[in-house]
C-alpha cells in the first residue's frame, strides 16, 4: 500500500476531516485502489502521529459515506463499487476547480477571464 503522507496537518481545522481528505485523495490519485486494505487505526495513528481516536473517527465517517467498508476481523477496505469511486473523483475535481475559481475571483477575475486564459494555455499546448 502506498499512501503518500503529507508533511503536517493544518491544525486550524479538525484533524479527522483532513485524514478523510487524505484518504480520498489517495483513492482519486490511484495510490489506493478499490479493495485495498487501509492501514489499521494504530498504524495510521503512529504514522501520522495523531490520537488513534481521531483516526477512528475519520474511518467511521469514511465508512458512513460509503468510501470504505469493513470486513470482520480483517480491517477496513476501499470500496469496490466503481460508481462510488467515480462519484468521489467527480466531487474531488469539482472541488478543485471551485477552489481555484474562488481564488481567481478574489483577484478580480471573471469566469470568462479564466476561460480565456485556459484557451490560451491550450493553444500553447499546455495540458
Amino acid at each position: 500500500m502506498t499512501l503518500i503522507l503529507h508533511d503536517r496537518f493544518d491544525e486550524n481545522r479538525p484533524i479527522y476531516l483532513q485524514i478523510m481528505e487524505m484518504i480520498k485523495k489517495a483513492i482519486v490519485r490511484g495510490e489506493l485502489k478499490p479493495g485495498d486494505r487501509l492501514p489499521s487505526v494504530r498504524e495510521l495513528a503512529v504514522m501520522l502521529r495523531v490520537n488513534p481516536n481521531t483516526v477512528q473517527r475519520a474511518y467511521q465517517e469514511l465508512e458512513r459515506e460509503g468510501v470504505t467498508f469493513t470486513r470482520r476481523g480483517q480491517g477496513k477496505f476501499v470500496t469496490e463499487d466503481v460508481e462510488a469511486i467515480d462519484a468521489l473523483k467527480k466531487a474531488f475535481r469539482r472541488e478543485l476547480v471551485e477552489h481555484f475559481l474562488k481564488e481567481a475571483s478574489e483577484t478580480g477575475m471573471s469566469i470568462d477571464d479564466v476561460i480565456k486564459i485556459l484557451e490560451e494555455l491550450k493553444d500553447e499546448g499546455i495540458n
Binding site: 486550524n12 481545522r13 479538525p14 479527522y16 481521531t54
Partner: peptide
C-alpha cells in the same frame, strides 16, 4: 474536545 475547539474557533489549539 480538541476537535470541537478547532471546529468552533477555526483555529489550532496552539493559536
Amino acid at each position: 474536545a480538541a476537535e470541537n475547539l478547532r471546529d468552533r474557533y477555526g483555529a489550532s489549539i496552539n493559536n
